[in-house]
């Protein structure tokens, strides 16, 4: 089974989420990248779209920025309050009153914040890009 198929099946199983049909998933240099179908017509070689995740012997990663594009995730979605959401965005671990382990999609109101790893009652975020992110204002959930 290809890593892309494994990744798709995982998204369905873990989050009950469909990849929008206009998005292509493909493996490139060991990571799964997401891009528009129309990008396939562009001939020069390069890095397509952005990283959606990774399938490796260590497990499956789902990038937060890709999770924000998934349609209707229905399982393993954690609704955070504003303080928890702010901490999550700022790459801090968030205490969660839920048992279980594995990847979770974190939301604040209607806003999908990203993906975190739940372990021992703590949610650890995973974002693309280096450096800490900060939010200093409020948004209507």
């Amino acid at each position: 089974m290809s890593h892309v198929t494994t990744f798709r099946e995982y998204l369905q199983r873990q989050f009950g989420a469909e990849v929008p049909k206009e998005i292509v998933l493909n493996e490139q240099e060991g990571v799964i990248r997401a891009y528009s179908k129309t990008l396939m017509m562009l001939k020069p070689s390069g890095y397509m779209g952005f990283v959606a995740g990774k399938v490796s012997t260590r497990g499956i990663e789902v990038k937060s920025e890709f999770a924000q594009l998934l349609r209707n995730p229905s399982r393993n979605v954690l609704a955070l309050d504003e303080a928890q959401a702010k901490a999550f965005v700022e790459s801090e671990s968030v205490a969660i009153a839920e048992q279980g382990e594995g990847l979770r999609i974190a939301k604040f109101g209607r806003h999908v914040l990203g993906v975190g790893i739940l372990k021992a009652g703590s949610l650890h975020p995973d974002f693309i890009g280096k450096g800490r992110k900060r939010v200093e204002n409020s948004i209507n959930p």
């Binding site: 206009e22 891009y35 129309t38 990008l39 020069p44 952005f50 693309i128 890009g129």
Partner: peptide
């Protein structure tokens, strides 16, 4: 690196980086 980061954050799916 800033290009990759912005492409992901802004949900750009129709760009190929070279």
């Amino acid at each position: 690196s800033a290009l990759f980061s912005n492409i992901a954050r802004l949900g750009v799916l129709n760009a190929k980086v070279t």
